[in-house]
Design a binder for these strands. Sequence first.
RNA 1: GCGCCCGUAGCUCAGUUGGAUAGAGUGUCGGCCUCCGAAGCCGAAGGUCGUGGGUUCAAGUCCCGCCGGGCGCGCCA
Length: 594
Amino acid sequence: MKTLLQTLIGQALLQLQAEGALSGVELPAIPVERTRDRTHGDFASSIALGLAKAARSKPRDLAERIVAALPASERLAQVEIAGPGFINFFLTPGAYRAVVAEILNQSDAFGRSQIGGGRRVQVEFVSANPTGPLHVGHGRGAAFGATVANLLEAVGYQVHREYYVNDAGRQMNILAASVWLRYLEHCGESFRFPSNGYRGGYVRDLAARLYAEHGSAYVTSAAQAFQNLPQDDIYDEDGNLVTPGDKEAHIDALVECARALLGDQHYRYVFELGLNAILDDIRDDLQEFGVVYDHWYSERTLEERGAVNKILQRLRDAGQLYEKDGALWFRSTRFGDEKDRVMQRENGQTTYFASDIAYHLEKFERGFDWVIDVWGADHHGYVPRVKGALQALGADPAKLDVLLVQFAILYRNGERVQMSTRSGDFVTLRELRHEVGNDAARFFYVLRKSEQHLDFDLDLAKSQSKDNPVYYIQYAHARVCSVLRQLREKGLPRNEARGRDHLALLTEPHEEALLIALARYPEVVEAAALNHEPHQLAQYLRELANAFHSYYNEHRVLVSEDGLRDARLNLSLATRQVIRNGLGLLGVAAPEAM
RNA sequence: GCGCCCGUAGCUCAGUUGGAUAGAGUGUCGGCCUCCGAAGCCGAAGGUCGUGGGUUCAAGUCCCGCCGGGCGCGCCA
């Protein structure tokens, strides 16, 4: 409808130009939007306000000339000029009702479009290091990323969902060392656990597994492992730093010790044990959450192919690298970054940044037209250097969009749930899912704008009342299903064709409001997709459910008159279809009964 | 200190890319079930859009300065 109006106005403008008016005026994009106030009609355009100055005429005069030149349309009941020069469009009742047939015809496809034109977009999200289970912060990235991907697919993009697995880097070595140290403890050794090691309970579980499989075959004395290491930072029980050392150097040296003491084969085994167990856990977790990927991209394969070294060489050849203090630096300040960045550390290890550049460049080489990364908001300072590196390598940084997701803060009994990463004491995504259910979790995670902090009320997410928006929407869906059950129980006939023939009987204000809400759905999906704003869809579904509940409360669907009953059933079924489609994009179930 | 994000009803948040009289939910108060699911509906009250300037036909929305909050500023990721 919106595009129809834009076309009509466009034709009117061309007509005016042909008549010699608006000469030399460049025609802008034509603004058409839904009105907030029903007395302003259904749609309004401010085109005359925007064009008045260039046309050297008063907005209202220009609006009148546009309206006069407007081609006729059977879907328009009335066109008015209002306020300073708005053109208000009133639709015919038939134009409202047409959406019911449209929905029933298209069913699952209603709301989908081809705006994306099949262009290839890659969405990379979550990509948490496989050094521990996903926590509630990752959960938001998962729900958000998955929904953005679904939305883009719905508007005609060819979407590739990817998880980048940091299975090669330093952090994985630290995990392996952590597992081994816990294993030593398990075997009776005692020592101060490194401050930079992984302290979560799952590390002890992995250590116990190592012991169960191999007994004490991996034991050496702790004293040996801790010989001649750089001093660690030492914290007291409250997490305050009491004796500063160099925790990074300490843990790196400890990793090297572990590797030397265990030997390549045994070290490899511990490493793989940790990686595989945790990655499997993450996969299962996400799958249960309804989040599936086309590809789990291994950082290790990048390194094995020499892609990281190739990037270093290319940057060196381009004169973008220099050596300082024994490390290799990238001149990211040339590309708007605040400071230059290390690509290769003094000890020869390449940084996370280096392999990330290789990965991102490869995304473009794989032929994606558009690349989207979903990151935690605490990584926002990382954006300029990645874009800078891409630019330095001749790729177009504008094709990369980084979407930042703020943390979710859990509340229980009105109080903030405390979490601490350092002690490994955090609420996992799995725990959250088990507590509130997948549907509530998926929905609550995308209810707010992504760059907004999210207050996640656990009690509300669990409540089964209208206070809980998930239940509120699902209940509207279940209600329609319930009406159909009632219909059968009462032995009433149903005839969809008869319903279509009697749509003109839908004249109640509540019915009109519901029809308008239904017609908005494709617009909402489009806006939510193109702006990466799933919350728009979530908010809309609440409004749609509200329109239905209000209608349902005021009027009976199962009336005795056949034509009206079938028309109302069709309207209800159309509502159910749209709710189902919308919830589907959000990854939320649409239950038939609750 | 510098950079990014955010300040809208008591609370949690929308606000259609600059449009008409700023909206929901929740909370408070008051109504609606001999009738398709009350897991619902209806109404009332509640606002200097943090603040001071600027841009223009039009500013919650764009620009600048303050105030207040969050995050970032490593040879960590």
